[in-house]
Computed example of a mutant assay.
Amino acid sequence: MSSVRINTRKDGSTYTQILFREFDPAKGRRVQASISFDDHGAALRWQKILEQVGPEKARAMLDIEQTTAAEKVVTLNDSWAETYISGLTGVEEATRTRYRRYMERDIGPAMGDLPLSSLCAVTADQNSVVQEWVNEMELDGFAPKTIQNKHAFLSGCLRAAVKRQLMPFNPCEDTRMPKARRERVFLEPSEFDVLYEAVPQKWKPMVLFLVTTGARYSEATALRVGDLVRQTDHDGKTFWTCRISKAWKYTGTSERKLGGPKTARGYRTINVPAETVAELDLAGRGKEELVFQTRTGKRIIPQQFFNLAWKPAVEAVADRIGKKPRVHDLRHTCASWMLNNGAEITDVSAHLGHESIKTTVDVYGHLDRRSGHRASTAISRALVQTAVRPVA
């Protein structure tokens, strides 16, 4: 803890003194210390830095600031972050809102009042301010993806500051980021049966739809009854298609708005198994009604589905199936079922709405063993021409 004292010199001028305690290596204990400022505002700002980072690091930052040419001290909170956010082009207002929320809730309290140049300083254990911030978020239980998103914004902000020569380099470039803790989960049909049985009856149709269509949660919950169409093929057999052209979008608030799918190829028409449609109870419903909705006809928010349906079901069967799938893993499971039952990977890519076939191959290529089988068969044929005897 520190305190502020305003003193008067003999000439009548005043100065502000910040009193605090710090460790003295020579004495082997904490001792009373102080630093004086002619500018009261600068003193209060330095006191805030002191409270955030401790005496040792605060002194180092003050030294950097005092040895810098007499320029206006620029901080993230004071001006730079907002200058950067306001100057971004090609982004929606919701993205700016999200970045401002990062500043308000996460970055600002941690390092927003530090001079930009001092963000390049390191602590006694050779960590940067940014690295310590990342480490603390990880300890607080933030998901790796969430940390990456916040860090990516900060990195872009500081990269722009380097270009403006407001700081010597971007400390974010050397940050050690947490590794993802969860791998994709692919459910076998028998494992899905166990999980499906544990899902409350009210939520079964949605779970079945997600696993048999591979639709993203934001896409499935944006579907209207009219998006599902019963059709007839040349042989007179009926089948169902679903037009996916909308998804719920983040707005920077608790509300969501309808927008397009995640990618350009996300606009797609897919076939839906008749068994899935039969569980949706579409009879007599208006075309503009949401397929999955609350009792009042509103969208089902993710937290509602997770808390009332998904989490209880997974917790009930995790020991039996040896897996803890996320909701998004139903999409992965859909892809694995298609590949394991004869679908080409190009079919899977179009069905899931991936922007590029490369995305599909990178994520699911290891599940399609047909190409591997063809390769090994070709090698076996070649071995016939060698002295190696084939296995009987």
Rank of each mutant, 00 (worst) to 15 (best):
L352V: 10
G365M: 05
R96A: 06
I357T: 15
R21L: 13
G28F: 08
E51K: 15
D63T: 06
R59N: 02
L290D: 05
Q131V: 07
G266K: 06
S155F: 11
C120M: 06
L383N: 11
R164K: 03
Y99I: 02
L223F: 04
S380I: 01
R100T: 03
H351T: 09
L88Q: 15
V162H: 07
L116I: 08
V199S: 08
P55C: 05
R268N: 01
P178V: 00
G108Y: 00
V73S: 10
K323G: 06
P109G: 01
E56W: 13
L282N: 07
K57P: 00
L367P: 08
G372D: 02
Q293K: 12
A316I: 08
R9P: 11
R159L: 01
A70I: 12
G41L: 11
L139E: 03
G12F: 13
C242T: 02
F306Y: 10
W337I: 14
E191I: 03
G353K: 02
D63K: 03
F37R: 14
A110Q: 03
R100P: 05
M103S: 06
A58G: 05
L282I: 14
I379V: 07
T238E: 12
P312R: 15
N170V: 09
V122E: 03
K204F: 13
S155N: 09
A387Q: 13
R265F: 04
E255N: 11
T95F: 10
L308K: 13
A343M: 04
E288D: 14
W46L: 06
A81G: 05
E288R: 10
A382Y: 08
L282Q: 09
D235M: 09
F209E: 02
F305D: 10
T123R: 11
W240N: 01
M338H: 13
E104I: 00
A313K: 04
K358I: 12
R320L: 08
A274K: 13
R181D: 12
D140W: 00
Y196M: 09
H151G: 00
V129D: 02
T238F: 06
A220Q: 07
A58N: 03
A43Q: 00
W337Y: 11
